[in-house]
């Protein structure tokens, strides 16, 4: 008798759980990924923010004292601005930020100039050809990023393919320095991020109604005028999305300046990494990260808005 009672209550419990699930499945679907992201994506930024306003003195050695910062955040407020002030006063950091932004911007522009006609040409290609070309664009994207950068090391090295070729043609009589220069970083970033520019542009140009081009021509617009008054404004969202998709990660790029630029190219991703790994100055590294995030927050919000609007369609 007690045994059956137990099973009925057990059954009742299982039933209740099921009932709860039936009623709350929607909440669960939202809650699980939401909680994951809150904990592993958003919370870490607050830790970074907190450490960036701490002092290096307490932070060395950093492992043991982390918890103390957690408890004693108020006392460290007075010292908080120090790390940021240090970044601001040291011309090296300011120059590095500006240099990163400049390299990212130039690379974005070059990517756009190469990608736009390519994306346009793929859209205008006949059926099966279009599919093959798209796969060819995505193929490098699926293969290792690191190895593609490495491939350029072989091309740009002093005894690399490009120098060999130039020597053989007779354009130069001794190898020119290509690897470990800013030029190499430009090439590497453009090469790596080109597919990220082509794909959103393709998606946008694909949606273009080409009878609008006919209409413009019919109304007296020459090809150039048609491009600037009709095609360009209508593919603007794709251009902006592609540019942001290149510009934002390129600004914080670490591997490309490290492998292709050597020590000669200042980019903020490298500085952050060396501040953290080599100098063990965690507060400054955190401050560098926070400032980088602040610099990029506007373009990131812009990207989010485009993404949200595209999703709403």
């Amino acid at each position: 008798m007690p045994e059956t009672q137990l099973t009925t209550t057990q059954a009742g419990f299982v039933e209740k759980v099921f009932e709860w699930l039936q009623r709350n499945w929607a909440k669960l679907i939202i809650a699980i990924p939401f909680a994951w992201l809150l904990f592993f994506f958003l919370a870490p930024f607050f830790i970074v923010l907190k450490i960036s306003v701490a002092e290096l003195l307490i932070a060395s050695p950093p492992f043991t004292n982390l918890l103390e910062w957690g408890d004693g955040i108020l006392p460290s407020v007075s010292a908080s601005i120090d790390n940021y002030a240090y970044l601001w006063q040291d011309p090296l950091y300011v120059r590095t930020y500006l240099n990163s932004l400049q390299i990212a911007a130039v690379c974005t522009a070059i990517c756009l100039l190469i990608a736009y006609p390519m994306a346009y040409a793929i859209v205008r290609a006949p059926g099966n050809m279009k599919l093959i070309l798209l796969l060819l664009i995505m193929l490098p994207f699926w293969s290792s990023f690191l190895l593609r950068v490495y491939a350029w090391m072989g091309l740009l090295a002093d005894q690399g393919t490009i120098n060999d070729l130039l020597l053989w043609i007779g354009l130069i009589d001794k190898p020119i320095r290509l690897l470990y220069t800013e030029f190499a970083v430009y090439v590497g970033i453009v090469y790596t991020y080109l597919p990220f520019m082509i794909l959103p542009l393709y998606a946008n140009i694909e949606k273009l109604d080409f009878s609008l081009n006919d209409a413009a021509a019919d109304l007296g617009a020459r090809p150039a005028a048609t491009f600037f008054t009709v095609t360009l404004p209508l593919t603007w969202p794709g251009i902006v999305a592609g540019c942001l998709l290149v510009f934002i990660p390129a600004t914080g790029e670490f591997v490309i300046p490290d492998l292709l630029g050597g020590g000669n190219v200042l980019m903020i991703g490298r500085v952050l990494s060396s501040e953290f790994n080599a100098n063990h100055d965690w507060p400054v590294a955190s401050a560098v990260a926070v400032v980088l995030l602040l610099v990029l927050v506007i373009p990131m919000m812009l990207y989010h808005r485009i993404q949200a609007r595209e999703g709403a369609y």
């Binding site: 109604d209 009878s211 609008l212 006919d214 209409a215 413009a216 009709v230 209508l234």
Partner: peptide, 8 residues
């Protein structure tokens, strides 16, 4: 034009 092709 058939679908008017107005510039959106």
């Amino acid at each position: 034009f058939q679908s008017y092709a107005l510039f959106p």
